[in-house]
Design a protein around this nucleic acid. Structure first.
Length: 319
DNA sequence: GCGACAG
DNA sequence: ATCTTGTCGC
């Protein structure tokens, strides 16, 4: 795994550069960080970070000039502070033409751009050749968040033929990296790797792992299932409960391809249990057809919408 | 106004 | 992901 940047420290550093009387938009900050998709995280940061009275977070606003939420969701104090600093308003909106600000040059590194390099290396390392060797044990892994900043990972090991549960494992740890769409692995992979180490210590090695989250079904073809598979060199399957990227042709087929940039990166599966599909993709070391096939085998009881290993890991992680 | 985003 | 009451369906 790569060294994780401290995004909160990075934002704090940037905020200190915004001159009094000026503002930046959430999206501008996100772009500087390396990806516009982080804009929601910036907005989230604006209202939930460790705030002090000297904190200049009121200088973050929406692209429209609307103020957006201030610490703890309030807005009045934000407007008061901005007006006191001389920020120009048009009605209740900030006039971005006059009061918008951008740092000049590239004085800032882009922490997410560095993470893209890791994702590209994962993408290159993924193998989509057929499974080798027998599949006797399968696993499902997932995380829950029992408290803010604390993650709990669960791993359920099943007999691949009977689907009987043979082992259960839980591990808890603090989580510092935020959730940003497209960067889930940097939030959840460390704990998954840690639980994997514990499996190895106990001499339990599943032959195939279902991961709650996508594999190749990812804007850079490097979702968390692929990251885990490459890191531990095991076959993995990604299972997403909603669509991250790409498009699915309309129709009533139970299996429909997920198309992205002219290739099939996953399969939308509609089990008879629910109208809402879930999305299967290759994590590592198997073909998409095999991933779909194993997903069906692992859901043969048809008791739940999702394959059994994912359903069980999800439930266990919340305990 | 909408699109528009795993967990 | 989490926050939450009743409610619908098997």
């Amino acid at each position: 795994m790569v060294e994780l940047p401290d995004l909160a420290v990075w934002i704090r550093h940037l905020l200190r550069q915004i001159p009094m009387g000026k503002v930046m938009t959430y999206g501008q900050v996100a772009r500087l960080m390396g990806n516009i998709t982080a804009a929601r995280y910036i907005g989230e940061y604006a209202r939930r970070h460790d705030h002090t009275n000297e904190c200049p977070c009121h200088r973050l606003v929406r692209q429209t000039g609307e103020l957006g939420l201030y610490v703890s969701g309030e807005t009045r104090e934000k407007e008061t502070r901005l007006r006191a600093e001389g920020v120009i308003f048009k009605g209740d909106h900030v006039d971005l033409k006059q009061s918008g600000w951008q740092p000049d040059g590239d004085l800032f590194n882009s922490p997410l751009t560095e993470l893209h390099e890791y994702q590209e290396s994962i993408c290159r390392a993924v193998k989509t050749s057929p499974l080798t060797g027998p599949i006797k044990l399968i696993a499902g892994v997932d995380l829950a968040y029992p408290k803010k900043g604390i993650g709990q990972a669960a791993c359920v090991i099943l007999n691949a033929r009977t689907l009987k549960v043979e082992h259960e494992l839980i591990q808890r740890s603090s989580i510092s990296f935020p959730y940003i769409s497209g960067y889930l692995a940097f939030r959840e992979l460390p704990l998954l790797l840690s639980i994997w180490e514990e499996l190895v210590r106990q001499n339990i090695e599943p032959d195939l792992i279902f991961v709650d989250g996508n594999g190749q079904l990812h804007p850079r073809k490097a979702g968390i299932a692929s990251c885990l598979g490459v890191e531990i060199n095991k076959p993995t399957i990604g299972i997403g409960k909603s669509l991250l990227c790409g498009s699915v042709p309309k129709g009533d087929e139970t299996e429909r391809p997920v198309l992205f940039q002219n290739e099939t990166i996953g399969m939308a599966i509609t089990s008879r249990r629910s109208q809402k599909p879930y999305y299967v993709s290759v994590g590592h070391r198997l073909t998409l057809a095999e991933a779909v096939d194993w997903t069906h085998r692992a859901g043969k009881q048809k008791k739940h919408r999702l394959p059994e290993p994912i359903f069980l890991a999800d439930r266990l992680s919340r305990q």
